[in-house]
Amino acid sequence: MADRVFAGAILVIALLYTYIAFTVIKAPFQYDPLGPESWPKLLGIVASLCAIYLIVRPDVERLKADLGTLGRLAVVVVMLLAYGRLFEPLGFLVSTWVFCTAFGIMLGATPLKAFAFGAVTGTVGYFACTRLLELNLPAGLLNHIL
């Protein structure tokens, strides 16, 4: 069933992809016999055929993950998105501190240890990357101090 749902979704995307290849993509002047649209047409057709095959003959029944695990994973994804959202405004040091603390606690570290771990990762990571390796990381909140 899980296979069928996924293959169905892929089929929709592949058909849309093929449709666009046949209708939208056109060169104002054809330079080569194939042009920009033939390759996507070919890919879209192959992908659609594969997806149809998987709908007819699926081999993975279920996602094999219980609700509790899926919930935890959803929390992780939300945390990652939040980390991405706060990365620039808060700056690397602070956002990493917060993220590592929260993630560490979620994975079973004691709050104090997770807090210390976040502090070390944020501070050491920031200075090692910006000063030693000369990589570009946002300073954010601490713009005036760092």
Partner: peptide, 9 residues
């Protein structure tokens, strides 16, 4: 619990 966050960072 420390290794996994480091991958994200």
């Amino acid at each position: 619990q420390y290794l996994t966050p480091l991958i994200a960072v």
